[in-house]
Simulated scan of single mutants.
Amino acid sequence: MTTVSAKIMQQIQQFPEDMSFGYSELAIARQDFLSAAKALERLQKKGLIRKLAKGRFYKPKRTPFGEKKPDEQQLLKPYLYKQGKRIAYVTGDYLFNQLGLTTQVPAVLKIASRGQRIFINVGAIKATAVKSYVDVTDDNYQMLGFLDAMKDLKQIPDIDIKNAVAIFKNRIRQLNQSQRQAMIDCALAYPPRVRALLGAVLTALNPKKGISKLSDSLNPLTTFDLGIDDTLLTSALAWNIR
Rank of each mutant, 00 (worst) to 15 (best):
P192D: 06
R30K: 14
I87Q: 07
R56A: 00
K208D: 12
F15V: 07
E41V: 12
I184K: 07
P60Q: 01
N176G: 05
P64F: 12
Y23W: 13
P16T: 06
N176I: 05
G47M: 09
N176W: 08
E25M: 11
I167T: 06
T223M: 07
K85A: 08
F65T: 04
R117W: 06
R62N: 04
I87H: 02
G84R: 05
P157I: 02
T128P: 01
L40S: 03
Q179G: 12
M1R: 11
P60F: 03
K7Q: 06
A112L: 11
A164D: 04
A187E: 10
T3D: 04
L218P: 09
V4I: 15
S113C: 08
L34F: 15
L52N: 02
Y141C: 10
W239A: 01
R117A: 05
K46C: 12
Y23N: 05
A124N: 12
P220R: 02
N163C: 11
V105C: 09
A164C: 15
Q44M: 15
A37Y: 06
D139K: 15
T137N: 07
N219E: 08
D158Y: 14
D152E: 13
N140T: 10
N140V: 08
I172A: 10
Y23G: 02
L48K: 14
A37Q: 07
R56N: 02
G66Q: 03
P106Q: 07
Q104M: 10
D135Q: 14
Q83E: 09
D229K: 02
I120N: 02
I120L: 06
F65C: 01
A189D: 11
E17S: 15
A236H: 00
Q31F: 12
F119M: 14
C186Q: 14
G199V: 05
K54M: 11
F96T: 03
G92T: 04
